[in-house]
């Protein structure tokens, strides 16, 4: 079972993930229409690129925008969650040992203590974000089961990974659950709204181009996000 989930199934999950996000990006760009969107994407390019880069960088910076600064608690939770979701699996020592054994290469690994902290931080921020959905009426009204499912899919590999690491006995079922939940997460990224993993950059770039080219970018120093 372990061999299967870390072998063919892992290949399949990575295949769906990589091809999926490329397809999502390609379809997004192909679906842009200068006349319908009213943005000359391929004319006034320097303004477009400038607008896109500003739009992405401001929002990738913690507290870099009015919206982030207005909501400091949420901002911290979002950045902790996303940084943890991306960097913990990439830089986890166990993953890199596994990579080295299977595929002959590995990335820099962080100390186990740090990865434990990051894992717990991911789980804690996911729980707090879920509680926020319940507590705030303006978030509750737009929240559906699908939103909780997304959080659950994203955080499941971290919960199972932590249990597998600290389970003294019967750790293999947890390890398999960890691998399976990780694969589910990878597959879910292109197929669900977790596609914002890559479409965040696309939509931010699009709005940045809109502002950069059409909505004042040529007559100002650029919108102060």
């Amino acid at each position: 079972m372990y061999e299967f989930v870390t072998g063919p199934l892992a290949w399949l999950a990575f295949l769906v993930f990589f091809i999926g996000i490329i397809v999502r990006l390609v379809f997004y760009v192909r679906g842009l229409d200068w006349k319908l969107d009213r943005v000359t994407y391929s004319v006034n390019t320097s303004y477009g690129v400038r607008g896109a880069v500003r739009s992405i960088l401001f929002w990738l910076t913690p507290f870099g925008t009015h919206s982030w600064r207005d909501n400091p608690g949420f901002t911290i939770l979002v950045f902790v969650l996303h940084l943890g979701l991306i960097f913990t699996p990439l830089l986890l020592l166990a993953h890199n040992i596994f990579l080295q054994e299977r595929w002959g290469f590995s990335l820099w690994s962080m100390p186990d203590a740090l990865s434990d902290v990051m894992t717990i931080a991911v789980i804690a921020s996911a729980v707090l974000l879920a509680l926020r959905r319940i507590a705030l009426p303006e978030v509750r009204i737009i929240t559906s089961a699908y939103d909780y499912l997304m959080l659950a899919i994203a955080v499941a590999p971290f919960v199972t990974g932590l249990i597998a690491r600290y389970a003294y006995t019967h750790s293999e079922p947890w390890l398999i659950a960890h691998v399976l939940s990780g694969e589910l997460f990878l597959v879910a990224i292109p197929l669900t709204k977790l596609s914002h993993f890559v479409l965040f950059f696309a939509t931010r770039a699009q709005l940045g181009m809109d502002y950069g080219i059409k909505r004042g970018g040529m007559k100002s120093s650029g919108i102060n996000w």
Binding site: D37, I142, T143, S144, S195, H196
Partner: peptide, 20 residues
């Protein structure tokens, strides 16, 4: 097309738009 459909699809329902 993709611009509006993507907006509707990937909205994470965070509610940050409320106070704006």
């Amino acid at each position: 097309k993709s611009r509006i459909r993507t907006w509707l699809e990937i909205c994470t329902h965070c509610g940050l738009c409320a106070d704006s």
